[in-house]
């Protein structure tokens, strides 16, 4: 609980920073004007450009952190991340296809395609998880699904007649929360909320899976339903996150590890802090993406990978003890 409060406080600070910092430097008077009159120029920058961007980063980060914690619990594998079962790759494929077919011209077209593809992948995974219970088997299916979706995405690149389309797809896949509007966020909140509810429902099943499939099966908990809820919930969260921001690595992998020292090893107790830590990480990464002075703004997915990979190595080094099998 204390850990959650600490994370909430840190997140609030970062959200405020994200609102105040940006490419366009504003003076104190302009900030005053923005707070007094949201319709003014500085008000537009703050409330229509920066605020939705900051909130989008936090929401996507929370979804990825929560999905990562659920995947690690379900698969009893500290290396699992939200994309481990192929949902991210599936969503990426959906978005790529939509862009290649020109659906990106329709507002929300790419996002809807990404979410639809993620849901299809999630449904397939839920069916597979009901039939194959060993985590190793599920991970192998995930690897196959990821590889296949990746191959199809490459095929789109391969067959794409115009380099512009290719560049557009690549840019989308690299991940960003720039230029997100309140309505973009609104659309993805519904699947994310549903996903979060399913994950919370599945939490007691995740704890039981610590002891393996057979003990869990004999525990009296409705493991079939709990397992399906975990897979479906994590898929919804991941799919909606990818639909909103493209493919963003490492947040879902690192967030649960970051909080495990404070939250303990209990996979159920790691859920809320992982979501908060994910929000924290991605909000910070997005501020970094904006503030690092480059000719072309860094893509969020690039920043999380650049900072996330070494950070993750460090966490893994320190946490190795807690997840020794």
């Amino acid at each position: 609980m204390k850990l959650n409060l600490l994370l909430v406080a840190a997140l609030l600070v970062l959200l405020a920073l994200g609102l105040l910092l940006g490419e366009t430097a504003l003076s104190a008077a302009q900030y005053a004007q923005a707070f007094g009159d949201p319709a003014s120029g500085p008000g537009e920058i703050l409330w229509a450009i920066r605020a939705p961007r900051v909130v989008a980063a936090a929401v996507v980060g929370a979804a990825l952190g929560l999905a990562g914690a659920v995947m690690q619990g379900l698969l009893r594998n500290p290396l699992a991340d939200p994309g481990v079962l192929g949902v991210s790759a599936g969503a990426g494929l959906g978005a790529s296809l939509a862009i290649a077919l020109g659906l990106a011209a329709i507002p929300g077209g790419t996002e809807a395609a990404a979410l639809a593809a993620a849901l299809a992948t999630g449904l397939l995974l839920t069916a597979l998880a009901a039939r194959f219970r060993e985590p190793e088997t599920l991970i192998l299916f995930g690897v196959a699904l990821s590889a296949f979706a990746g191959a199809l995405t490459s095929l789109i690149f391969n067959l794409s007649p115009s380099p512009v389309t290719t560049a557009e797809i690549l840019s989308w896949l690299m991940g960003s929360v720039a230029n997100r509007s309140w309505s973009d966020i609104g659309w993805e909140l519904a699947p994310m909320t549903l996903g979060a509810v399913l994950c919370v429902y599945a939490a007691r099943g995740l704890v039981m899976l610590t002891l393996g499939e057979e003990t869990a099966a004999m525990s009296g908990l409705p493991m079939g339903r709990l397992r399906a809820a975990a897979v479906a919930g994590a898929s919804l969260l991941t799919g909606a996150a990818v639909a909103m921001a493209g493919i963003i690595g490492f947040v879902g992998l690192a967030a649960p590890h970051l909080v495990r020292a404070g939250a303990g090893a209990d996979p159920a107790k790691a859920l809320a802090p992982s979501a908060l830590a994910g929000a924290l990480l991605l909000t910070a990464a997005d501020i970094a993406a904006r503030m690092i002075p480059t000719d072309q703004e860094l893509k969020l997915g690039v920043v999380t990978a650049l900072f996330g990979a070494p950070l993750f190595a460090l966490i893994a080094w320190r946490a190795a003890r807690s997840w020794r099998v």
Binding site: R76, L211, M218, S219, L221, A265, R324, V325
Partner: peptide
């Protein structure tokens, strides 16, 4: 109640928490 031969434990939960999973409901 069943105690399988497999004794692998996924996460480093405290001993009392593991034992309490016998009464999950």
């Amino acid at each position: 109640g069943y105690l399988p031969q497999e004794r692998r434990v996924g996460w480093n939960l405290p001993a009392w928490r593991i034992a309490s999973l016998g009464a999950a409901r």
